[in-house]
């Protein structure tokens, strides 16, 4: 499988921006389909489960499971290039309630005849950005495997390993 380079985390104060860039071995339309269809999401994004909502239009709702984990709004929907959504669009007591609403953006751009560059950008609170980045990194590795026809292995240690890597790279 192709390797995923570490994401870049930038910022000062209580907000960070993380950027993860990876080349996927697929055309933009196939990568878009893997990013947005429920059947595919349930394979590579571990939290997606039956019962989620993905209203595929600007202003539509996006919900994982019962909404405890993610209950946001689609802000940008332009297949096969741009998808943007908030993590949580209404009030909440947990860390997702934040002035950036943990806005996540996925960009897809043909980078060669066989590959598409995925660039993921998210604004996140400084105190949770390491875990958030490690989570995205592990999800994107699974997406790469899916698009490369490789088996997706549930590795319970991978997230902790990535947290250690990012903590070393971006010490607080």
């Amino acid at each position: 499988m192709s390797t995923t380079s570490l994401a870049v985390i930038e910022g000062h104060g209580d907000v960070r921006r993380l950027t993860l860039s990876v080349d996927l071995r697929a055309a933009p339309s196939a990568a878009w389909s893997a990013l947005t269809t429920l059947d595919s999401l349930q394979i590579w994004w571990p939290d997606w489960e039956p019962g989620g909502v993905f209203d595929q239009r600007e202003g539509g709702r996006i919900v994982i499971g019962d909404g405890t984990w993610l209950d946001g709004q689609v802000k940008v929907w332009t297949p096969p290039h741009l998808l943007e959504f908030t993590w949580r669009d209404h009030s909440s007591e947990n860390w997702f309630e934040h002035k950036t609403r943990s806005l996540a953006r996925f960009e897809l751009l043909a980078s060669s005849a066989q590959t598409t560059n995925l660039r993921l950008t998210q604004f996140a609170p400084a105190d949770s950005v390491i875990g958030g980045t490690a989570g995205w990194h592990s999800f994107v590795e699974r997406l790469q495997r899916l698009l490369e026809g490789e088996p997706i292995i549930d590795d319970p240690d991978r997230f902790d390993e990535l947290v250690r890597l990012y903590s070393r790279e971006y010490p607080t």
Binding site: V76, E84, K99, R101, L103
Partner: peptide, 10 residues
């Protein structure tokens, strides 16, 4: 489409 002061204007 997005106006999240002071981080994102789209």
């Amino acid at each position: 489409l997005v106006m999240m002061k002071p981080y994102v204007f789209e």
